[in-house]
Structures are given as C-alpha cells and as structure tokens.
C-alpha cells in the first residue's frame, strides 16, 4: 500500500500534500471559499450538505485529473449534522419535510457526489467507525486493484466541526 497524495481539511486549515493552502474564512464558509476559488462551475455544490461539501472539496483538490477506481470513506458521526437539520423541519408546528434535505440524511451520499463529479463507476463504500485507524484493514483487504483508490476519513458533526483526511492509495 502506497500513499501518493494526501489532503487534510479542518475548520481552520487546509493542507495539501504537506503544503498549507491559505484561506480567509473558517468552517463552512471556508468550504464555500475553496469552491469559489478552485471549482466555480459546479452549482450542485450549493445543494449539498456540509459533509458532502467537505468530501467534495477534499476530492476536488486532491484528485485533480488522477483517475481512481473506488471511493472508500469513513467517519464516526454518520450524517448527524444534516440529520439534525432535517429533524428541525419535521418537529413542531412548522412540519415541512424537504426531499432535498432528506436525501443527504445518509452518510454515503458524499461518496456518490464524488463518484458523479469524477465519473467513478467503481466501488463507493461508507463505513462508520470508532476512529480512522480502523479503516486501514478494510482498505488493505480490498485486494487486486490495478488503479489507485480514494480513501480516508470524512467527518462532520456540525457546520463548523468537521475534519477530513483523504488519500490517493495505490496497491503497489
């Protein structure tokens, strides 16, 4: 197993392949800032929940033109931030469940968003684990891959509490 590229995003910092990327904003606003600077032409970004925005931006900066065979992500809090937002739309007198919000109440949607953007018709998998180290054996057991995969931790528990560490991993 060999890691060729790596990105880490926290609400306060972005580090791509060891190099920090300077940003003006923090938290959710920082993800939008990164979108406006590096992506620009994918308005679907604004429909996404914070978890998907986080994974999307991380994959965007990390992959560039590198094709990958699979997207394997894990986190601890599943889709709790968007679940909480959806719950607010069905609680109390203002009952108005939104299908646009409901679809993001699954933690694997972020893997689907990345697959669509990068035309990845290989595997997409989402695991809920205690900590990032638990993902390693899962990735290792994914044998016989000719192309690299995109894998890592993509965690979001609130608009300004998230962290992602994604890598491009090769089998040789």
């Amino acid at each position: 197993m060999r890691v060729s590229h790596e990105i880490e995003i926290t609400p306060a910092a972005v580090v791509l392949n060891g190099q920090p990327i300077a940003t003006n904003e923090q938290g959710e606003k920082m993800l939008v800032e990164l979108y406006r600077r590096y992506v620009k032409d994918y308005p679907k970004f604004f429909k996404m929940d914070t978890l998907s925005r986080l994974g999307f931006i991380a994959a965007e900066l990390l992959l560039q033109d590198q094709p990958v065979a699979a997207v394997i992500l894990a986190n601890r809090s599943a889709s709790i931030k968007n679940d909480t937002d959806y719950l607010a739309t069905i609680t109390g007198e203002n009952y108005y469940p939104s299908p646009a919000l409901f679809v993001y109440t699954l933690p694997n949607i972020v893997t689907g968003e990345i697959a669509i953007r990068h035309h990845i018709q290989g595997e997409t998998s989402c695991y809920i684990l205690e900590k990032p180290e638990q993902l390693e054996p899962i990735i290792l057991s994914q044998i016989n891959r000719q192309s690299p995969i995109l894998a890592g931790w993509c965690e979001c528990s609130g608009p300004n509490t998230f962290n992602a560490k994604l890598q491009i991993i090769w089998n040789n």
Partner: peptide, 11 residues
C-alpha cells in the same frame, strides 16, 4: 461480491 456506483444521480 461487487459494489459499483452509477455515477449518475444521488437519488
């Protein structure tokens, strides 16, 4: 076993 994404639409 095999897992594949459509890479088409989320819903």
């Amino acid at each position: 076993g095999s897992i594949h994404n459509d890479a088409n639409h989320i819903s």
